[in-house]
Design a binder for these strands. Structure first.
Lengths: 345, 345
DNA sequence: CTTAGCACTCTGCGGATGAGAGTGCCAGCT
DNA sequence: AGCTGGCACTCTCATCCGCAGAGTGCTAAG
């Protein structure tokens, strides 16, 4: 896309200044302000020419003739793409991150929950995360538990995930039949989720009908835990921040935003769409869903070693402090990766 | 408290009409409207006298001299306490409830989650629930699972709850020591959560220091699952409804409301405070927290047989359709009780 | 005790006005 | 050619005014 050179040095500076000023104040920015604070030794008339050009190019817009300019989604995009520096965190923020990761890490799921809240506090937006899927994780337990009229399938993964599902217990099953099924499942311990799942489907073809159904249901429990190689649920935290007065959303937009944040499948899709190999920013209409919200998403993957585990990030208004949001997300994702890597030895 | 007789028949009718009209329209209600729709064969001047008296008594208030009246929290309270009839559900609502409880119920936790969403859809407010605690539930599994550098304590209850916690695995433990601890825990299967917890504390006194610590930690896992005889977490759903344009909350109030809804411990406390033996209504300033939100809570307990399991209800604005909210909460709590009772056989 | 009537109060709205912010453009300067 | 000062122009926003409308509170009469 357009880079700094393509746009011309001065236009880029003007655009950056407008973005930063608008994000800071929430007010449309006028040429006078840029002339004063932009650090270009140039009059407001010159700035006005540049601004008209930037508007022509689609980077700025005009609420009305005699107001200042505000950035369009494309304007924010250019700003983000040409940021000359990585954002630096303030000391308080750095400390908050350090103290959050100071304790010995035992349960990644717990840490992830905490990290979502941490990010929401750091940025004053809402935190989101997609936890690791289980496809390649080893099963350390796969049990069938008799619970009277029902039975529970319980799967425990090497890294601490626990999936359960309660099923009908076929009435005519003898204790003997139950134990047989139990043993079959137990035999899969030590394999991966996806491996066991495949094996179960295989196995199902070779057994009588009622046991057949059971094995398929267990396979389904494993499938749900590994769906699309990612988790089945999304963590969301700090949504109250989005209701802050300082945010410019109309009620109706806010409502739709909250609605979607509650729908896990939809959020999962959105976060999947925006995921990238590094810190990624999706601004307003760049994605249909964020467009509907008039919001932006900043995410980063976290890894154990070289393997992507999941995604963590924030959701906020398009009028966002991208520099600091990106810095926070990057920092938390990095610490999280360190923690996860260590946890895998 | 004040009942219909105490207030006088006509005042009560006037108050009821004002509450219903105000809830319906959101506009302060004038004497003319009551004279027309109240069904009292009486002029607006008479109504005005009654209204002045009701204001004197603290049931109504006045935004300004020449606006109509709106109910105070005490006005809503009187209204709710003297409702002559139980609200009836509309057919769509009845159908929605029926279809939600139509499927065979296997997992109470899942059903409860669904019920919270159901209530939020029925009422257009936010649904909340406190799931059952585990104190008297039997443990069907209590396992210690070796996960390399860590270990997992896994507890499974008779009714399908699963609690897990990951702990540090003492480095110097031999496989032998691990198995010993494992066996000790397994021996507790079949007992209740609270029983096992007590037993563990006893046992801990009789063993060497490292095993001692472990047993205490396991006891703590059980304690967390049974804290205060209730669950440790709260389910919340449909909060987007609260951001609806029709609601009158200011942004700041809305923000505080969302903030608290996210804080499980605080919500748990509030729901504990407002809980009663039947459908219970808490209006605005009657509880400090709901006062801060300018909101009301309607809850009802759900039971298995005669035993209270938990609480389910809704959170909405003080300007709430109490009649229909109470009917919805009552109906869902009843179905839930039936389902839970059946599940226990 | 009720009611019609009426003066009174307060809000909300439309229109007028003026200040202020900011633009766009032009003509002259470097 | 690019920059700049100057200036007319536009649009918003706050304020004020006046007025219609809603609703009250009170009084005097039934």
């Amino acid at each position: 896309m357009a880079d700094r050179g393509e746009l011309g040095q001065r236009k880029a500076v003007v655009l950056h200044t407008i973005v930063e000023e608008y994000v800071r104040t929430g007010e449309p920015v006028g040429s006078e302000t840029i002339a004063e604070r932009g650090g270009l030794g140039v009059s407001s008339a010159t700035i006005r020419n540049e601004m008209a050009a930037l508007e022509e190019l689609g980077f700025l817009s005009h609420p009305h003739t005699s107001a200042g300019r505000i950035p369009t989604d494309a304007g924010y995009r250019h700003y983000v793409d040409t940021l000359p520096v990585r954002g630096r965190l303030r000391d308080v923020q750095r400390k908050a991150i350090a103290s959050h990761f100071a304790e010995a890490i035992l349960d990644l799921e717990e840490v992830l929950k905490g990290s979502v809240m941490l990010l929401s506090r750091l940025t004053q937006y809402a935190g989101v995360a997609v936890p690791p899927g289980a496809a390649e994780e080893q099963l350390v337990r796969l049990e069938l538990i008799d619970m009277g009229p029902t039975m529970m399938v319980l799967a425990v993964g090497q890294h601490g995930r626990v999936d359960k599902q309660i099923l009908d217990r076929p009435e005519h099953w003898s204790t003997e039949a139950f134990h047989r099924a139990e043993r079959k499942l137990r035999a899969l311990q030590g394999q991966t989720y996806s491996g066991s799942q495949a094996k179960l489907l295989e196995l199902a073809a070779t057994v009588p009908a009622d046991e057949h159904d059971l094995l398929l249901m267990v396979a389904d429990v494993l499938r749900l835990a590994t769906r699309g190689d990612h988790a089945t649920h999304v963590m969301v935290g700090g949504v109250a921040n989005l209701a802050d007065e300082a945010q410019t959303w109309r009620r109706e937009t806010l409502r739709r935003l909250f609605e979607t944040l509650e729908r896990e499948q939809e959020m999962l899709q959105v976060l999947h769409d925006v995921a990238a190999d590094d810190v990624s920013v999706t601004i307003g209409a760049e994605h249909p869903t964020t467009g509907e919200w008039e919001a932006s998403i900043v995410t980063a993957p976290f890894r154990a070693g070289e393997v992507n585990l999941g995604t963590i990030g924030i959701v906020g208004p398009t009028r966002m402090d991208y520099l600091s949001a990106m810095a926070s997300v990057r920092a938390v994702a990095e610490r999280l990766s360190e923690a996860a890597t260590e946890l895998e030895q």
